[in-house]
Amino acid sequence: MTTPTSRERILARIRAAVADAPEAPEDVRGYRTRHAPDDPDAVLDLLHENLADYRAHVHRAGPAELPELVARLLDERGARSVVVPPGLPEEWLAASAAERVADGPGLGPAELDAVDAVVTGCALAVAETGTIVLDGGPGQGRRALTLVPDLHVCVVRAPEQVVASVPEALPRLDPRRPLTWISGPSATSDIELDRVEGVHGPRTLEVVLLRG
């Protein structure tokens, strides 16, 4: 498959191409590491605002209110079945009557497509861009779980999972894990630049900001 000669020839051409080039100047990183103020409440408000700006539905709850809220969100969207990723805190779904579907070898793409919703936690959230990041850790599951069902309910623990900016997010993420950065529901502007929410990913994204 690999032709060693192609590899060697490309590398040789690269070396010849830059042989006479001057050494590149050092990186400069004069940009900000964050734009938001150093105030957890303000950062949480910003996350809320930016998530909503890109058409996620944002809610706030304490631990005691969370089960009722999750149950209501599933209910309102008519979700009768919900995928439960491994490690999801049991109490999050305690008040919901939806059928629980556990992940397992039998849950292929077609089976997942028959499930209405998924409830997950996240790895972190980025306030300045209105982004939640999933890394497949406990309570998040493999990537397909948050992709195929049409409703995604995502719980963000505030303030510990909330960072202000992209430069603050990257060092907290492990690149060896598959990551999914989500900023609002799936969208397209391909037809006359009219924005349409919901093409292939979940058409509805509900984000719950959980205050501990």
Binding site: E128, I182, S183
Partner: peptide, 30 residues
Amino acid sequence: VFLQTLPRSSTAERMNPYTSTWTGTADGDG
């Protein structure tokens, strides 16, 4: 740097709806 400059330059968004990153293959995911 690029996850700040690319979405704003391209679709004029603070961040595009989905960004996927992966490293080789992952057990049981993808």
